[in-house]
Design a binder for these strands. Structure first.
Lengths: 225, 225
DNA sequence: ACGGATGGCTAATGGGATTAGCTTGTAGCT
DNA sequence: AGCTACAAGCTAATCCCATTAGCCATCCGT
């Protein structure tokens, strides 16, 4: 009986992939064992049980999300960074619904729990976005929670099929980004008239709908760092 | 052996209460049976199984949430309505975390699923909030999804203990309300200078922090219906 | 080669969901 | 009042899944 060459990381990676495929509720030790080519009890040599597996998947997911968001905002600031972060986050959750779902409901057991560190990494990426807006120091925590709630809520509702109506979901998300930008930007001194509202750029099916006001169109709209 | 006088509604209500107490993950048929005073298999005379029970709890929760939000916004408009709706929603989720959690991940099976109707009722309440802002007809769906994402995200993150930092959660939520108000209001013609930002009213432990700008302080801030 | 640590296996336990089939209140009818 | 049919309970049994115990093979360094 040849060895399967497993280690905890491989088991967790396979578990995360499986969770993405079948949903976190149907992620079972037996199914995962079959997937990696061993019998069920053998998994316990690598993870301590289903709960432990879920925690580790959550850590993996948070780190991957942090990488995705952190990478996406490189070189951007202000609204561009906000849009990049939000899109990257949502893309990650939509691409990996199972592992992201594993992150909800897990609590770090202590201050040195890797879960806490992974969580902090993701938050840091969003904190970087806020630096492009004039958010007072005392409000950063609140803004962070708000931003996280917004992204988390949209992503989970979408991946749970919570949006049942006709309007295009991508359009809604771009609207959400503009909304968040207004909510953050309105804290700064504003030097322009009313926001143009909903005039769509009619760019067909491309990604740049809803005022893709990139660097060229925003000079001085909101003080940036 | 006397009859317990159960019916589906009683079972579901007890199940929802139990979910609030022990969490949806630990809601078990055996525990519920014990709670209502029958043996486990007897529950199957009233609900079709655990999945069915969860769906019914979700329907109950959505209807209760819709009632709470709908009732809270009576007589308010604009920012006051937004704040009332958001607070009522969060209060409901915090008071009934288990039954609200039952709503995530359930999909309506068809157009006549009571789940779809309950979902619509909750959405309607939020739609009423939007009527106080100048949201173009074409954007209502987007705004609705955004608002729902924001509330849902905050509520679920909080009830999952996803906020691990120091800042006060009630403060954060009031900040969130102000943020949403800015995001929605900035679509209207605006007749005033920059929003005052974060000056707190320092009202001690009361509920009216973060610019409790009620009817008296907002005349003409945003066109209301 | 050798010996411990490691990773895998079979067998067994226990809990929870669900079903089958029986029994008995109970409501409604005569 | 008595009969009947259905509704609501119950016991027993089954299946699936997580987890543990204890055994055996493999690998790696000596």
């Amino acid at each position: 009986m040849p060895r399967a060459g497993l280690d905890p990381a491989a088991v967790v990676a396979a578990g995360a992939a499986l969770a993405d495929e079948v949903g976190p509720a149907r992620l079972t030790m037996g199914l995962l064992a079959e997937r990696v080519g061993v019998r069920t009890p053998s998994l316990y040599k690598h993870v301590h049980g289903l709960d432990d597996l879920n925690r580790r998947i959550a850590v993996l997911a948070l780190n991957e999300a942090a990488d995705a968001v952190g990478g996406a905002i490189q070189g951007y600031a202000g609204r561009d960074a906000l849009a990049a972060a939000a899109r990257a986050f949502r893309a990650f959750v939509v691409a990996h619904p199972g592992r992201y779902a594993a992150t909800i409901g897990v609590e770090p057991s202590g201050p040195d729990d890797p879960l806490a560190a992974a969580s902090k990494r993701l938050l840091s990426a969003f904190t970087a976005v806020l630096r492009g807006y004039e958010v007072p120091e005392s409000d950063v925590d609140h803004a962070l929670r708000t931003l996280r709630s917004l992204c988390h809520g949209f992503a989970t509702l979408q991946s749970a099929n919570g949006f049942q109506w006709s309007a295009d979901i991508d359009d809604s998300f771009e609207w959400l980004i503009a909304f968040a930008d207004r909510g953050l930007c309105a804290m700064c001194d504003r030097r322009e008239g009313p926001v143009a509202g909903t005039s769509r750029s009619a760019a067909g099916s491309g990604a740049g709908r809803y005022l893709p006001r990139s660097a060229e169109s925003d000079g001085g709209r909101c003080a940036r760092s």
